[in-house]
Amino acid sequence: MKSRIHILLVFSLMLLLPALGHGQCKNFAKKVCRLELSPYIHDGNYNAAILTEGEEAELFKTFYAGQEYRMAVCGSESLPKVEFTVMTVDRKVIYSNASNGYASNWTFNVEATQQLIVVVKVPSAASSSDDDELCSGCVSIMFGLKIDA
């Protein structure tokens, strides 16, 4: 009987923990990262994931001519400073926040419509090799639009 109870307990937690991770990410994106976009208006899209130290994510997006954008890349406080790089489709680097004091946002406008790639990386923390643990946390990529009055 005990084993059945244990199995049930483990399954209940297994079912609920992913929702916990996503719920955390949603609130982080809404309550923390979105503020980074101000005064630009958030486009409404939700791009967030749980990343572990050393992991990367890539986002492909088309940016339209004449539009001014602010992008914000935010990582949970538990993570090392998140690096992000903006590249052309042929991987030429346009912007790297590592060369700009690890800024969490970047504002730009495009004169011609472009597809760009945003590469986000959670570096390995210097201390993590000592404590033998890798940290995971929410990383969110959000875009703001300049809307004329």
Partner: peptide, 27 residues
């Protein structure tokens, strides 16, 4: 189990001070 998990969810929304958004996994 569900109450424990829902309490965890509530805690997760209380802000950074409680070290939310973090999961630790051993190497």
């Amino acid at each position: 189990s569900m109450v424990v998990a829902s309490l965890l969810s509530c805690n997760a929304q209380k802000g950074k001070k409680q070290g939310e958004h973090a999961l630790r996994v051993s190497r």
